[in-house]
Nucleic acid binder design. Structure first.
Lengths: 263, 263
DNA sequence: ACTCAGACGTGGGCTATGCAACAAAATAAT
DNA sequence: ATTATTTTGTTGCATAGCCCACGTCTGAGT
């Protein structure tokens, strides 16, 4: 109880300092311990303790000698398994990016796998027009040879993407050659998504594209998310890191969905 | 000439390594020299040289012991003068953020001053709805108590904002309590902007808002940008760091524009 | 007033990083 | 094949940062 009271009233010095750190990191990608120690007139140890505390809360990313702003987009912990997953997603992304032809128009969904694809596409430098509701995708492609149209909508910080009726209204105004979507689950019933607003966006993209690609990590095979995105028949192809298991594979063949295995 | 040829063909090792660094930084906010040196099987000096090169190109932000992803939005060099300017912009931003009442709807323009305002507004935690064409503004506010509507449009990487006909079409659908715009110049003739596409967006925001605020740094007084944004009469108030000089001040009074001096 | 927990500073031993100059290796140009 | 250029590695040293333990100070609770 005593502890809580301390916190409630708070030592101005400490909370204010940490607030400053967070504000600073919105302006600059990286701050140094030594620098802040000088500016605040405190010892480096104090700043170090601040960084550690903020880091525990996930508000900053610790680095040697300083701290960086936590990545935009979403990024769970980067433990062993996650890093491994990233490699698989990268393979999927690369393979998917190769599907885009020069001068084509594409829609790109939000999600970590599609971000990987955007990276690969930026690297390939394929001139094309991309429509997306994902901020990281827009930012990644925007530096390259692609023209990027960003969808309107309500901004969701957790996903770094926009959703909502504005997004849907916007999408129906376009027809594209291809769309690339991800999903949080994929079963015989088709892709499904846990974040409800996103399911509608993915569905809308599927309706506006001639070729419809699902980028899906094998870890999600068989998993069913909250909201149904579409049937297997709504897909032209899936880009995966591993061949699906028999049951799913048969369903895919029955629905004449092409399976593209990356690598 | 010989030099160019080397570059053209390129050493795979180097370019590939640097590409990996950039890719890694899209996933993580910070990478360490020592870590990459191990992973690539090269010396730390080599990685350091890579970082320096990438840093010169503005593709990464150097840090002690590693490098961070360059900040979203655009931040020119942080030399002495720029840092000083930032303080002034921060004052302007804080003052402007105080103008927003709870539950109000606002439009926020793109630009470094408005990013500062977004920071201050996020800090204040004023519940409100913001419509913006600036990615950094959306990302900053999106984490807080504000609801953020992002405009559609073509994404301009250099400004981290969207522009174009889609943006304009979107804006006319809304009416808001206030708008906050910046500009690259400000004279007796009113605000002006060097990036042509942005002038139209700013103008559109001015038309949709009851209270129209211009956030302007005193260094821009008297400067005239390429495109005219609007007349002095189109503004309700200007938020500045210093009182304008006589000639401009008189013009402002004649147009009954309120002058808010920050600090 | 007294007590005590939290916050901060200090000092020392240690490791990691930065920097610069030079050597070695790889590769393109001739 | 040889040379020129670029890239990378190595070495040594100065600096910066990390970590730990302990001492001091402040302010809240009693």
């Amino acid at each position: 109880m005593a502890k809580t009271k301390y916190k409630e009233k708070g030592r101005f010095k400490k909370t204010e300092r940490r607030r400053q750190i967070l504000l600073e990191l919105k302006l600059r990608p990286h701050v140094r311990i030594s620098e802040l120690a000088t500016r605040f007139g405190v010892s480096t140890e104090t700043v170090r303790r601040d960084f550690d505390a903020l880091s525990d809360e996930g508000l900053v990313a610790r680095a040697h000698g300083g701290a960086s702003a936590p990545a935009q987009g979403h990024y769970p912990t980067l433990d062993e398994r996650e890093s491994a997953r990233i490699e698989e997603r990268e393979r999927i992304g690369v393979r998917a990016a190769e599907l885009v032809g020069e001068g084509e128009t594409v829609m790109i969904d939000s999600g970590s796998t599609t971000i990987q694809m955007a990276r690969a596409l930026a690297y390939l430098g394929t001139p094309c027009t991309a429509i997306t509701n994902s901020i990281p995708v827009a930012m990644t492609l925007g530096h390259g040879s692609a023209q990027v149209l960003l969808c309107p909508g309500e901004y969701l910080a957790a996903e770094s993407a926009v959703v909502g009726t504005e997004t849907l209204e916007f999408l129906v105004r376009f027809n594209v050659d291809r769309c690339f979507i991800g999903s949080s689950g994929f079963s015989e019933e088709g892709p499904s998504e846990s974040v409800r607003g996103f399911a509608a966006v993915k569905r809308s993209m599927l309706h506006r594209a001639t070729h419809r690609h699902l980028l899906i990590d094998s870890a999600k095979f068989g998993r069913k998310g909250l909201a149904h995105v579409g049937d297997l028949g709504d897909l032209s192809s899936i880009v995966v890191d591993k061949r699906p298991t028999d049951g799913l594979m048969r369903a895919l063949e029955a629905a004449s969905v092409e399976t593209v295995v990356a690598e």
